[in-house]
């Protein structure tokens, strides 16, 4: 018995009612997956946004465009076979914590330099003008930010 649908497209299919069990059959009927990386603008990092199922890299890219670049601004996409990703385990996340105080390799590990100069100048009675002001201006802004962030990570480590 055919369906009488409100949708003319469905009626054109002449679907017949069936009680037969449905089975999509073997594994991989929907293909393997690809991890999709999306770059929003030139100069940005590519960012992982999800997966697509596709039989080839070319088709994966096509599906990725439909799925992940339909609305959001995009200038470039990468697809990588999920099976090709070699990843660390969350269980091993402690390996990213520094084993001991490694401030020697951070810019915030070098905060006493100024004090040492001042002490030396005082002891020697030097009167040449101090470079403090110009030094402050020359210090790179980015380095300051890193100091602060790194300080939080290491300082509050549990």
């Amino acid at each position: 018995m055919q369906f009488e649908s409100l949708d003319p497209r469905v009626n054109r299919l002449r679907l017949v009612r069936t009680n037969e069990a449905f089975d999509v059959g073997h594994e991989m009927d929907q293909w393997q997956t690809w991890e999709v990386f999306h770059q929003q603008a030139r100069g940005d990092q590519h960012r992982h946004v999800g997966i697509v199922h596709a039989p080839t890299a070319e088709m994966a890219l096509l599906f990725a465009k439909e799925q992940y670049a339909r609305r959001m601004k995009c200038v470039n996409l990468w697809v990588v076979r999920t099976a090709d990703v070699y990843a660390s385990e969350y269980e091993d996340a402690d390996m990213f914590e520094p084993a001991f105080d490694k401030s020697y390799r951070e810019s915030f590990g070098y905060t006493q330099t100024r004090a040492r100069i001042d002490e030396y100048r005082k002891a020697q009675g030097l009167t040449t003008p101090a470079a403090a002001e110009t030094e402050k201006q020359a210090e790179p802004v980015a380095a300051k930010t890193t100091v602060k962030k790194a300080g939080i990570v290491i300082g509050k480590k549990k």
């Binding site: 449905f22 991989m28 009927d29 997956t33 991890e35 039989p55 088709m59 990703v85």
Partner: peptide, 26 residues
Amino acid sequence: RYAEEKGRWVRQALIRPTERYVTPLA
């Protein structure tokens, strides 16, 4: 059911026997 059944031959024609399924990462 119709969509899955009628599309199956296309999907199967494109399967590469060397590929395998692994669970997606994220």
